[in-house]
Amino acid sequence: MNDIDLARAKKCSRLELRKWQNEIINKLESNYKTLEASEKKELYNDLQTLESVGNRRKGIYSGFQLNLLTKAEYLEMAKTMSDKAIAKELDVSVSSIGKWKKLKNINWKEVFSR
């Protein structure tokens, strides 16, 4: 799920999230034998992301919440918080923050130039 879809998901109502999830489930079920493994993995990840967005609305947080963090949100948080504090806020390990930054191509110069 790209940042645009993630932003859209964060704005959706719970009903819209459920509808979106059902569309993905239907796509998986109807095309399971013809989908490539990478496509299946992407659809499963999208489902997990949508579930996390819904859980976050309900006040349920998990380590997967890190995947909901956008680069812009992280850079804004990094202005006033250390990675350790951000990790504590998101209930993840500091090493998970480091892996996430590597995945998002965020380097220390980018963080400190703000």
Results as ranks from 00 to 15, higher is better:
71 K>W: 04
91 D>W: 02
35 L>F: 12
103 L>R: 13
27 K>G: 05
51 E>N: 08
59 G>E: 01
36 E>I: 10
3 D>P: 04
55 N>E: 09
58 K>L: 15
37 A>M: 10
98 G>V: 03
7 A>T: 08
81 M>R: 14
4 I>R: 08
66 L>K: 00
43 L>F: 11
107 N>T: 13
1 M>T: 02
54 G>Q: 10
65 Q>N: 14
58 K>H: 10
60 I>N: 01
42 E>M: 14
20 W>N: 06
38 S>Y: 11
90 L>F: 06
66 L>M: 01
2 N>V: 08
77 M>K: 09
94 V>H: 03
84 K>Y: 05
58 K>E: 15
6 L>V: 08
85 A>L: 14
64 F>K: 05
93 S>Y: 12
35 L>T: 04
87 A>S: 03
105 N>G: 00
91 D>H: 05
9 A>K: 07
29 E>L: 11
98 G>M: 05
106 I>M: 10
92 V>S: 00
98 G>L: 02
54 G>F: 07
61 Y>Q: 04
63 G>T: 01
89 E>H: 14
69 L>M: 15
67 N>S: 10
71 K>C: 02
29 E>H: 11
87 A>K: 02
96 S>Y: 00
86 I>R: 03
14 R>Q: 13
46 D>Y: 05
113 S>R: 14
85 A>D: 14
102 K>M: 11
110 E>P: 03
61 Y>H: 10
85 A>W: 14
97 I>V: 10
19 K>E: 15
4 I>F: 07
48 Q>T: 06
63 G>V: 00
53 V>P: 00
32 Y>C: 07
14 R>M: 12
49 T>P: 00
12 C>D: 06
54 G>V: 12
40 K>E: 04
20 W>D: 08
101 K>R: 11
90 L>H: 00
47 L>Q: 11
70 T>S: 13
34 T>N: 07
10 K>F: 13
62 S>D: 00
89 E>Q: 15
21 Q>T: 09
83 D>Q: 12
89 E>K: 13
80 T>R: 03
103 L>V: 11
58 K>D: 15
80 T>Q: 03
11 K>D: 06
80 T>P: 00
43 L>Q: 08
96 S>G: 06
89 E>P: 06
95 S>A: 09
9 A>P: 08
11 K>E: 08
34 T>R: 07
36 E>G: 04
37 A>G: 04
3 D>C: 00
65 Q>D: 10
1 M>S: 04
70 T>D: 12
88 K>V: 15
85 A>K: 15
